[in-house]
Design a protein around this nucleic acid. Sequence first.
DNA 1: ATAATTAAATGGTTTAACCATTATAACAAA
DNA 2: TTTGTTATAATGGTTAAACCATTTAATTAT
Lengths: 234, 234
Amino acid sequence: MFKKAKQTRVFQDVVEQIQDAILNGKLEPGSKLPPERTLKDIFNTSRGTLREALRVLEQKGLIDIKLGVAGGAIVKRIDAEPIIESLALLIRSGEVSLEHISEFRIKIEGSMMELAAEHAKKKDIQELESLFNEAKAFYNNNEWENFLKTDEKMHTHIGMMTRNPIFRFVQKSIHDNIHRYYAEHLSMNKKRALENLTDFKKIIAALKINDAKTASSIIMDHVKRFSDKMQKNR
Amino acid sequence: MFKKAKQTRVFQDVVEQIQDAILNGKLEPGSKLPPERTLKDIFNTSRGTLREALRVLEQKGLIDIKLGVAGGAIVKRIDAEPIIESLALLIRSGEVSLEHISEFRIKIEGSMMELAAEHAKKKDIQELESLFNEAKAFYNNNEWENFLKTDEKMHTHIGMMTRNPIFRFVQKSIHDNIHRYYAEHLSMNKKRALENLTDFKKIIAALKINDAKTASSIIMDHVKRFSDKMQKNR
DNA sequence: ATAATTAAATGGTTTAACCATTATAACAAA
DNA sequence: TTTGTTATAATGGTTAAACCATTTAATTAT
């Protein structure tokens, strides 16, 4: 029925005003806020209070602070950063385990593959094929670091194909945290790389005949294999 | 290869120390930090700098601040709040639309239903049946507000049944934001309520025979119907 | 026993100064 | 002229000391 009554802290009022300006597009990404000493006059507050507001905006991922002459608060383009950090806290606190993330990731990548298949345009399939050939070349040369990068690019492109930014943000949040906390250094070998290549070949084939379920099922196995390997390696 | 070099701001060092203590469990949820005037001495910094650190910790959802005597910073139990707020920013910025959220929600609830079915214990099904009967009673009395609350409880319980906190957090983030920005006041009627009841009856039946795919497919339709209704109402 | 008042702890804000970093301008050297 | 060095000033980061505002607890009055 009722909402929480508003707090009366001055810095929160400042946060809301600047945040609203950013979210309404009155302040564009890349644009610079006035210096602290000017802002404090605009909002009729002290520099300390103003700086507390800037800390909050910074933590929300709405601004970056640059030092020195021509420095100051710069409006950021909104991205997955705050979600990545929130997930990181859940992991570090032990609230969420590698098994939890792996299970979630399998379901998410499966769902994304279905959507991607539904939206697949000729150009998307061409892009995936081009990435596939890139990966194949790295496979032939045993360039595992580059192979993994291309593998990631394929996942990312499938994310783009969903045409849904939430999936992209969630995908990136999972990916970044897995690599930050569980798989900093991945080992690869010819056998596993070939399995991955084969998966993507099958996925592309399935996309061409609009077989969303098959594509989804393949990528879920693909991700599961990666997860199992990772859990064995710990 | 390399990581971003650490910033040299004093308040960030304070944030990290307190954050680590919380995440390592050295500071338990509910426990109170010393007053600002003591903390500033402990960290050998000024009160202004210390307060900037507290703002960051507050924004991360790690502490709450209470005013007055016996007030101060209280360690919070980690929850979905920061993720909810991040998603809220994506929505308010226009980066994410109702259609995006609806599509995401359908896939998530479908995935959750599959996992819930896999983990379903007799007690879970009993709980769902009890909620079903509660909803039926509200249906008979045309108590729509209570009906919707029970409907939500059923979804939440399915979230619990996944045994995976990420799904619960994501589910709550979607739910809270949909109701904050798109469906503050839901209208219900006998026809739609009956459809919902029927869905849950079928879901429970599917769970009893361990038919995860059917249960999942029903709840996806169920959520889709809700989304369509919501989008028509705007 | 109850209500009103006072005191003290604690977060919130202000002011004024100084320190640290960095882009730019001015200058010096090749 | 070009290139490297040095000074300048803009701007964020930090500090110190004071006062204000809220809230709990103790005290006092009814």
